[in-house]
């Protein structure tokens, strides 16, 4: 059974159909790529699935056996879905450690009234959580920066922290929106390694949006391609590489076939 399944997922902004009738299945334990030209609706797809946007009527989203079509974002998160944002959206005035602790919010073991009273159980639980989160920071290489505000990190460190915050939720499904944007090629490779490491360590299913196709091709088991809000292709990397519709969507018709193929292969 698919971990995430959308049927007829649509969203329009005024007249613009940002996502239209997308059927998509993500199998558990896989790394699923989502690609498409700028403005093709990838981020909107994420926003719909995570409850940031309300989908249009007729859409249907199922996650881990629950109908989440009309759930609010925090409810979906509680079911085990985590994501990063294209523009990161870190809590920049909070410390690095606090950022990942917020990520761990759903796993808080004490109630709200208790948290307001500051009982010893709260302090113990917070202490345990802190240690666990420091472990996580250690794994992604940010332990030394635990106490500084997230806003003071470098660009690459911020991307790592965004990832860490999502992982801290201990999700079943992790949606990554352009995790490598703005990184140098070497760092992108490193990042992908980290992501795959995290996937193994925390037994995640991952959906990744990425423009660097080389990365997508080499890490994803399945790739879905969006264009103008519609799914135009889906399959294993080898199939996508040679799909004519994909090639057209990316580069138009004018280029000779070879060049197109090379471009998509990321050479």
């Amino acid at each position: 059974m698919a971990l995430l399944e959308t049927r007829g997922l649509s969203k329009s902004f005024g007249g613009l159909k940002a996502v239209s009738g997308v059927d998509l299945k993500v199998q558990p334990g896989t790394v699923h790529g989502l690609i498409g030209p700028n403005g093709s609706g990838k981020s909107t797809f994420f926003n719909l699935v995570t409850g940031v946007y309300q989908p249009d009527p007729g859409s249907h989203i199922e996650f881990d056996g629950h109908d989440i079509t009309n759930l609010q974002a925090h409810g979906i998160a509680a079911l085990g879905m985590a994501r990063t944002f294209q523009l990161l959206r870190l809590f920049s005035e909070m410390t690095v450690l606090e950022n990942v602790m917020v990520g761990n919010h759903c796993k808080t073991s004490y109630g709200i009234v208790e948290s307001l009273l500051g009982t010893s159980r709260v302090r113990q639980a917070d202490q345990n959580m802190k240690e666990e989160m420091l472990d996580l920071l250690e794994f992604i290489g940010l332990a030394n920066f635990a106490d500084i505000p997230a806003g003071e990190l470098s660009g690459g460190q911020r991307r790592l922290l965004a990832l860490g915050r999502a992982i801290a939720m201990k999700p079943k499904l992790l949606l990554l929106d352009e995790p490598g944007a703005g990184l140098s090629p070497v760092n992108v490779d490193k990042l992908m390694e980290t992501i795959l490491g995290l996937k193994e360590r925390y037994e995640l299913t991952v959906v990744v949006v990425e423009h660097i196709l080389k990365v997508v091709m080499s890490t994803c088991e399945t790739i879905s391609v969006l264009d103008h809000g519609q799914k135009i292709a889906e399959g294993p990397p080898e199939m996508i590489k040679n799909d004519h519709a994909v090639i057209e969507a990316y580069l138009g018709r004018e280029l000779p076939d070879d060049e197109i193929r090379n471009a998509i292969r990321g050479q």
């Binding site: 005035e93 909070m94 004490y110 939720m169």
Partner: peptide, 22 residues
């Protein structure tokens, strides 16, 4: 407490807070 962190997260970024389960 977790409540205080939730408050601050909302102050910093409502959307990021909500997808973090707040």
């Amino acid at each position: 407490s977790s409540t205080g962190r939730a408050f601050k997260a909302i102050r910093e970024d409502v959307i990021a807070a909500s997808v973090s389960g707040i």
